[in-house]
């Protein structure tokens, strides 16, 4: 319980600090008013509207009041509209979130599907040819920036062989499964391969350790078949690092797949933020940042709590 409260208080402090900084950032941006008006489209706005817009952003209020307004607006989901075009920000965010979450889920699934069998095979004959080959290849993928991978795969699959569209469109699975697959295949692969490499290395290292423990020797002595030893005995106790990394990535990838989204022109949450910065859509950026940070922090909090629940050593602080 003490552990829980400690983590909760940490979470609250971080949430407060994040929202506070984000709400103040707007005022601290150099010549923010002019940029907002420029984003709105200069000339198309009269004095009265201009004042109304600036008032709604509370730019001229003292810091604390600004923060208060920001939190109130955020909590009551009164997120406002974009400066240019008056689109409601909430739709923009939910649309972006849909794409980002889809990418994240696909990427993680493919990564795990690739990583687990390879790690098992590699760890089973550690030091062998397959192990060394897979370690080398995974090292290569870890060292390959995702924009490089996106460029290379894009060149091969869309330009040379024209198997997939160069610009992915957000086509729902139920609208057309085949089109959906075609549009999401490359982004998913670009996201998944480096992840798979990381996961594979983590799992392999843990598996090698597990496979040296006594209960594996016992199982082997009893004549348990190799697949059963690997899947039934060795896999579960070796999953700790892998599950931690995968869980942290759930939060990180929702906003962190900006590069992949940009490479394939998918309007995910990360890309919307970057475009927002370019277009001086500060309100949109502010809200998106807070949403992303909240998702990220909350997931990490849940992971922490679950581990404290599953493993008493974590609660006692011995695992750091």
């Amino acid at each position: 319980m003490r552990y829980f409260l400690q983590k909760l208080s940490q979470l609250l402090i971080v949430v407060f600090a994040v929202t506070f900084t984000v709400s103040l950032a707007l005022g601290a941006i150099p010549n923010s008013e002019e940029r907002i008006l420029a984003a709105k489209g200069s000339g198309a706005i009269n004095e009265e509207e201009k004042n109304k817009l600036l008032d709604s952003l509370n730019l001229r209020d003292p810091t604390i009041v600004q923060y208060g307004h920001f939190v109130k607006d955020f909590v009551t989901l009164d997120w406002g509209t974009t400066f240019n075009g008056n689109q409601p920000i909430s739709t923009s965010i939910s649309d972006g979130l849909k794409i980002s979450i889809r990418l994240m889920v696909y990427g993680q699934l493919i990564a795990l599907l690739i990583a687990i069998p390879i790690a098992l095979l590699a760890a089973y004959r550690s030091g062998g040819v397959f192990d060394r080959a897979s370690t080398t290849v995974s090292f290569g993928f870890i060292s390959m920036p995702n924009y490089v991978l996106a460029t290379v795969l894009g060149l091969l699959f869309t330009v040379r062989w024209q198997l997939f569209p160069a610009i992915s469109e957000d086509i729902g699975f139920f609208a057309s499964p085949w089109e959906h697959f075609k549009n999401f295949f490359l982004p998913t692969i670009v996201l998944a391969l480096p992840l798979a490499a990381t996961y594979m290395r983590l799992l392999r290292a843990d598996l090698v350790n597990t496979l040296q423990s006594d209960f594996i020797t016992t199982a082997r002595a009893k004549g348990v078949s190799t697949p059963r030893i690997l899947f039934g005995h060795a896999l579960r106790p070796s999953l700790f690092s892998l599950v931690t990394a995968a869980a942290v990535n759930v939060g990180a990838l929702v906003g962190g797949s900006v590069v992949v989204e940009t490479a394939f022109n998918l309007n995910g949450l990360g890309r919307r933020t970057v475009l927002g910065i370019f277009a001086s859509e500060f309100r949109l950026v502010q809200v998106t940042v807070v949403v992303l940070a909240l998702v990220y922090v909350t997931i990490n909090f849940v992971v922490d709590i679950l581990y404290g629940f599953l493993d008493p050593r974590v609660r006692a602080g011995r695992m750091g």
């Binding site: 994040v18 906003g255 962190g256 990360g270 950026v285 940042v289 940070a293």
Partner: peptide, 11 residues
Amino acid sequence: LAFPALLLAIF
């Protein structure tokens, strides 16, 4: 660390 790393840099 509350922000995804790359996004923080972008901001």
